[in-house]
């Protein structure tokens, strides 16, 4: 006897209704608003593609995407690279020579920043980096305005994000390494392969799926980044750390340029969807 499959769709109804009201309709309203001039009160005025034309010429918009690239480096590329080294070192070096308890204690310490709400991580670093009473200046005997100097602010935010993000790839990669067949390493050892050769020719190819997942999720997180910018710099000084998400927030809630803010948010959404799609395509081809 076969379980009949008719009638199951009843179970989808609550979610589909909520989904319609919370995701689909608001998203379409946002796209619609991006074709208007609207302050948030009164009637929106249809202006076609004017907001998008304005975006293309807006230096702040282009800068905000350049800063996003910096944040992708800080949140996806650097943590993945360092995370690979750390995970491999912990797994097949520390774990084997100093015991797995040492390895998991170190892993937990690297992971600790990840448990914080990202806004709270920002509060912690805002305090550490304070120009007059912050601990960082005291330690290094410096007198720098880390977040207030336009030449330093983006680099500082990037460094904070590396700290925040690093534990995530370490944990994922170490979990991935557990399913690698030890026979590969044993065979390589018999051949007298160096640690680097094993890292390059066994570890990295074996945990490719994990590397993909980490790069994808961290890249999306970097494109969306809002909390740390809000807490640490509010996009400043000047536009030194402006990112698209904060730029749209600014237009929505402080400048009452709802139409323009919607256009920024729509472009950001499209970029994220395209990036996700590309990653998944590449991953499919790999497999």
């Amino acid at each position: 006897m076969r379980v009949r499959t008719r009638g199951y769709w009843l179970y989808l109804i609550p979610s589909l209704l909520l989904f319609l009201g919370v995701i689909v309709v608001p998203f379409l309203m946002n796209v619609g608003a991006s074709f208007t001039r609207w302050s948030g009160v009164g009637t929106p005025r249809w202006i076609g593609f004017d907001n998008y034309a304005r975006l293309l010429q807006d230096e702040r918009f282009w800068q905000s995407f350049q800063h996003n690239v910096g944040l992708i480096v800080a949140m996806a590329i650097v943590p993945t690279a360092i995370g690979l080294l750390l995970a491999a070192a912990l797994f097949d070096y520390i774990g084997k020579r100093f015991g797995s308890r040492t390895a998991s204690a170190l892993r937990a310490m690297y992971y600790l920043p990840q448990v914080l709400p990202v806004a709270v991580a920002g509060v912690v670093w805002g305090w550490m980096l304070h120009p007059s009473y912050g601990a960082v200046n005291q330690i290094f005997g410096l007198d720098l305005d880390w977040l207030g100097d336009p030449d330093l602010a983006l680099a500082t935010v990037m460094a904070v994000m590396v700290w925040f993000q690093l534990g995530y790839p370490v944990v994922i990669f170490m979990a991935g390494l557990q399913r690698v067949d030890p026979a590969y390493y044993e065979a390589a050892e018999i051949d007298g392969a160096s640690w680097w050769r094993k890292f390059w020719h066994i570890t990295i190819p074996q945990i490719r799926p994990e590397i993909f997942v980490v790069l994808l999720t961290c890249t999306i997180a970097a494109l969306k980044v809002f909390g740390p910018i809000f807490v640490l710099t509010r996009g400043g000084p000047g536009n030194a750390t402006m990112v698209p998400s904060y730029f749209s927030y600014l237009n929505f809630f402080q400048k009452s340029n709802v139409g323009y803010g919607s256009a920024i948010a729509t472009v950001l959404a499209l970029i994220i969807i395209v990036v996700t799609f590309l990653f998944l395509r590449v991953q499919e081809r790999e497999q």
Partner: peptide, 24 residues
């Protein structure tokens, strides 16, 4: 297609929903 829809919803930036949600 329903699963893809849910997945896209999860990756959408909340900024692209925020103002309409605020308004509604």
């Amino acid at each position: 297609s329903i699963l893809v829809l849910f997945l896209v919803a999860n990756t959408l930036p909340q900024e692209a929903l925020a103002y309409p949600l605020y308004y509604l």
